[in-house]
């Protein structure tokens, strides 16, 4: 795996954690599952407002942009604003939301471009 992919993954974790914390979510799990083809980030949170989930789906669910693969990802996780997910949205291929009994689960999938 290219080192760049891992560096981007670590920034995504930082950005997601910061975003959730800035929205006052104090109790969440963030799972990281990686193989040679793709990576999944799974967020499980009990008290997360629907409007925040909708915002995340809107911003992260947009089409992946190749231009940002190199330029801009370093800015992730380095903001004090609650509403900045634009760069993250350019790096994630798919976001899925599941509403379970007492928590919401968001699965973000990113397909690796550089396997070597």
């Amino acid at each position: 795996m290219n080192k760049l992919e891992y560096r981007v993954d670590s920034k995504i974790i930082k950005q997601l954690s910061l975003f959730l914390m800035l929205h006052g979510i104090k109790d969440f799990q963030l799972e990281f599952h990686s193989n040679n083809k793709n990576v999944q980030f799974i967020i499980k949170a009990k008290s997360i407002k629907q409007e925040i989930v909708d915002f995340m789906v809107e911003k992260i669910g947009r089409k992946r942009e190749l231009e940002i693969e190199i330029y801009g990802w370093e800015l992730m996780g380095d903001t004090d604003s609650k509403n900045e997910l634009d760069i993250l949205g350019s790096l994630i291929d798919k976001i899925e939301v599941k509403k379970l009994d007492d928590y919401i689960e968001l699965t973000l999938t990113r397909v690796y471009r550089y396997n070597e």
Binding site: L66, E67, E69, I70, R113, Y114
Partner: peptide
């Protein structure tokens, strides 16, 4: 040399 796609660098 980095085995990355030239397209990824388009902004630069």
């Amino acid at each position: 040399t980095q085995k990355l796609d030239y397209k990824s660098f388009i902004i630069v």
